[in-house]
Computed example of a mutant assay.
Amino acid sequence: MTASHLSLEEGTMSGSPADDILRLVFSFRRLAHGPADGDCAAGTCEECYALHRPKVERFIEQGVPLHFVIPAFPAKSPNPQKVLGTLPDMAERISLEFLQELCDYTRHYYEPGARITICSDGHVFSDLVGVPDETVRAYGTELEAVLAAIGADAINTYGLEDAFPGFPYEEQRSMLTSHYAVPVEEVRARTLADPGARDIFGGIHRFLFEDRMALSTGRSRNSVREETKSLAYQVIQRSDAWSHLVEDFFPEALRLSIHPQVSHSPKIGIHMMRTRDNWLTPWHGVALDDGEGIRLVKRHEAERMGATLVMRGGRVSHYIAPNVSASVKPLIEEVAS
């Protein structure tokens, strides 16, 4: 598969179709390692399977495709040190191809396969992260075009405007929080008490701080850090509200996440591309061809190594690492007779 070149031989394991499918998904897990992870910090345990097996088995009993939901693909980060622009590029394309291939690969274990609903959360917190709603809408329109271009017929999208149609985005956000959000004070208390929630807060806060610092001039790091700390609690509040809405609208679906999750979470954190950063996502980075495949890095990291910018269709697409041609393997390899 695109994300890690998984072969069918690697994915073929004896067991029930439900466990084989979960084993496939778990092979791309984005884990938040913590004290509670214990024996499954480096793999999986029976409890990991038991949390999700009933949902998989229900789909199999009904003879219909498995249904995954993943809140993801909100909009590009506003930080030019991380991304190439405001529209989807090769990073999104590779990630969408991975999700489609994940659905395809499930057919090896269960013929109806799977489908994925991308629950785009761009409008959920666009005002908090400094991305205009018009930019979010343009990103979503181009994302649909990419899905069509790659023939991703197992993927559909769902957004805030689908949940609350006919209302301005600001009213949609108000309706989301009034129906599904808990008070920010409760989010703050949970963050202080729960190591998993604290890890999520740390990742969100880091993203916000990096983006706001890149766009701020004449401000101290401490003042920006304090501002983004408050924003992080609000982003988590709305993100949790969106998660609750998605669970309400799609109660039978298996829940994927682009954030690292502890092993025994009701959500399965998942990587869609090779990366060395457990928190990096396609909308916070760029695609880099390093000669062994395409991995996700931040724009400034690609430029620091002297990578070459590639254009596709008259638009910025991705980077190629320097001297990559020296490490490329031939397409046909001679074998000893």
Results as ranks from 00 to 15, higher is better:
Ala3Asp: 06
Ala3Gly: 02
Ser7Pro: 09
Ser7Asn: 10
Leu8Arg: 08
Thr12Met: 13
Met13Glu: 10
Asp19Pro: 05
Ile21Gln: 10
Ile21Met: 15
Arg23Val: 02
Ser27Pro: 01
Ser27Met: 13
Arg29Ser: 09
Arg30Phe: 09
His33Val: 11
Gly38Glu: 14
Cys40Val: 05
Gly43Arg: 05
Cys45Ser: 09
Cys45Phe: 05
Glu46Tyr: 02
Tyr49Leu: 14
Leu51Ala: 11
His52Gly: 00
Arg53Phe: 02
Val56Leu: 10
Arg58Trp: 00
Phe59Asn: 01
Glu61His: 08
Gln62Tyr: 00
Val64Cys: 01
Pro65Leu: 00
Phe68Ile: 01
Ile70Ala: 10
Asn79Arg: 08
Pro80Trp: 04
Gln81Tyr: 05
Lys82Ala: 04
Lys82Met: 04
Pro88Asn: 07
Leu99Phe: 07
Leu99Ile: 08
Gln100Trp: 06
Glu101Asn: 14
Leu102Met: 14
Asp104Ile: 07
Thr106Tyr: 04
Arg107Gly: 08
Arg115Asn: 05
Ile118Asn: 05
Ile118Arg: 02
Ser126Arg: 15
Leu128Arg: 15
Gly130Asp: 01
Gly130His: 01
Pro132Asn: 05
Glu134His: 10
Thr135Val: 09
Thr135Gly: 01
Glu142Ala: 13
Ala145Pro: 00
Leu147Cys: 13
Ile150Cys: 12
Ile150Tyr: 10
Ile150Ala: 11
Gly151Tyr: 08
Ala152Val: 10
Thr157Val: 15
Tyr158Phe: 15
Gly159Asp: 11
Gly159Cys: 13
Leu160Asn: 10
Ala163Asn: 03
Phe167Trp: 13
Tyr169Lys: 13
Glu170Met: 12
Glu171Asn: 11
Gln172Ala: 08
Arg173Cys: 14
Thr177Arg: 12
Ser178Lys: 14
Val187Tyr: 04
Val187Lys: 03
Arg188Ala: 15
Arg188Gln: 15
Ala189Ile: 07
Thr191His: 09
Leu192Tyr: 05
Asp194Ile: 07
Asp199Ile: 01
Asp199Ala: 12
Ile200Gly: 02
Ile204Ser: 04
Ile204Glu: 04
His205Gln: 06
His205Tyr: 02
His205Ile: 01
Arg206Ser: 13
Arg212Val: 11
Thr217Ile: 04
Arg219Ala: 07
Arg221Val: 06
Asn222Trp: 10
Ser223Cys: 02
Glu227Trp: 09
Glu227Ala: 12
Glu227His: 12
Ala232Met: 05
Ile236Gln: 06
Ser239Cys: 04
Asp240Leu: 14
Trp242Leu: 04
Trp242Ala: 02
Leu245Asn: 03
Val246Trp: 02
Glu247Arg: 06
Phe249Leu: 15
Ala253Met: 00
Leu254Ile: 11
Arg255Tyr: 01
Leu256Phe: 12
Ser257Ala: 10
Ile258Thr: 08
Val262Cys: 12
Val262Leu: 13
Ser263Tyr: 03
His264Leu: 03
Lys267Leu: 13
Trp279Asp: 10
Thr281Leu: 07
Val286Ile: 02
Val286Leu: 02
Glu292Phe: 15
Val297Gly: 03
Arg299Gly: 05
Arg299Thr: 07
Met305Tyr: 00
Thr308Ala: 08
Leu309Arg: 08
Leu309Trp: 07
Met311Tyr: 14
Met311Thr: 15
Arg315Pro: 04
His318Thr: 07
His318Trp: 11
His318Ile: 05
Pro322Asn: 03
Pro322Gly: 05
Asn323Pro: 00
Ser325Leu: 07
Ser327Arg: 15
Ile332Cys: 12
Glu333Ile: 09
Glu333Ser: 10
Glu333Thr: 09
Glu334Ser: 13
